[in-house]
Nucleic acid binder design. Structure first.
Lengths: 211, 211
DNA sequence: CTCAAGTTACTGACCGGTCAGTCAGTATCT
DNA sequence: AGATACTGACTGACCGGTCAGTAACTTGAG
């Protein structure tokens, strides 16, 4: 109400962002349940009490990490799909490569595995993630596949199923990387893995001949 | 040394099997870290102390679950691949459907998600699983793909990558089922999901025309 | 057959360590 | 002297693993 009366009260309000950054790192490293708030605080250079000045608790901290990190990227993806001009195969390629750039190979890359791991033990977080991320992500894939089918570029596969079938290898690449892949169990070069996947999938989707 | 002197000392030595069955259920339900040994014991109808008569601790219990449950199934799979006569596309279909029957839709279905979730926090268990399960499973897929390429049925894709690209949607189906899918976040009918996947993948692999 | 001694199978209270969340207190501004 | 930002010791609940004790069964001497 009268808050505007203070001309110079916040010097460096980057504090919450530092906290969510530290939390993201540790959630990805250890999982949600196994991350200690003491460690999050220590990594951000504050004490545990300070955490509670900015977030109501562990759950709220988690939601803030997702909201800040992933939601804006999905919005950018929607922009891409809306304005893209060109073949739908090319759009699918671009969307998946963009996703790999912005999420897969960034600090956010561990989030899908994190959610899969913790969903059953923290159903409220799962519901939040489903609504904030998964539903919106599927909507992007849906638009691309429908576009391709309408334009006669893709066969008339079952769209709702194909969304997940086609995105699955991309997710698995990431999930692997942040689970058994991190234990020296061998992995793949992301570039050639995505190439092989898109090669097989786009050829499998195509109506007539390739591009 | 003189143990053979007792003619009738064991009546029902099914105890360890009951314990691993209870452990499998709870590991799949809650994860490895979040499962309490008290609960495993209670579900098997014994006390926690009894668990330690049969297993050295939580880790050993876990390894016994995998060894008993999954390793024999992989051996059966190797038999199938060795003796199969017919098209390689058909073999791939059969192998994946068999896997879905014996593992995917059984009580063991939660194991892949379990391992992915816990691998980083329990690297020793991950190493065991990698050696006992993943390496052998990949070997099966490798043989099928090589067979198809050698017989001119499949294109000469990069086999090591294709193994994982093709198996990824099958794994994701299961992973989903035991993570967000268990929180009412929507899922797929396994039959039509596998159909869609095999349709796209086999068409993407094929050299000339379909079967 | 009887009963004590020995053996096996099992129990559950307990210990030591962990961690989310609390809050009385300190420090640094205005 | 009051407001704001932050601290870290503390609490209560939790759980893997331990172990002294109990119960049930077997053996064999009398």
């Amino acid at each position: 109400m009268e808050a505007l009366a203070h001309p110079r009260q916040r010097r460096k309000q980057a504090r919450p962002a530092e906290l969510t950054a530290a939390a993201l790192e540790l959630f990805v490293e250890k999982g949600f349940a196994a991350t200690r708030l003491d460690d999050v605080a220590a990594r951000a250079g504050v004490s545990k009490g300070t955490l509670y000045l900015y977030f109501d608790g562990k759950d709220a901290l988690f939601k803030a990490v997702i909201q800040e990190g992933i939601v804006p990227i999905l919005e950018a993806g929607a922009g891409l799909v809306d304005t893209f001009e060109g073949g739908s195969a090319e759009l699918l390629r671009t969307l998946i490569r963009e996703w790999w750039q912005r999420i897969g190979s960034s600090a956010l890359g561990g989030v899908p595995k994190l959610m899969i791991s913790e969903a059953r033990n923290f159903p409220e977080l799962a519901a939040y993630y489903n609504e904030a991320v998964i539903t919106r992500g599927r909507e992007l894939m849906r638009r691309v596949l429908r576009r391709g089918i309408e334009r006669g570029e893709f066969r008339a596969v079952d769209v709702e199923t194909a969304i997940d079938v086609i995105f699955a290898p991309v997710l698995m690449l990431l999930i692997w990387r942040y689970s058994l892949g991190a234990c020296g169990c061998g992995g793949h070069d992301p570039e050639s893995y995505l190439d092989t996947h898109l090669d097989i999938a786009l050829r499998g989707l195509a109506t007539g001949e390739a591009t």
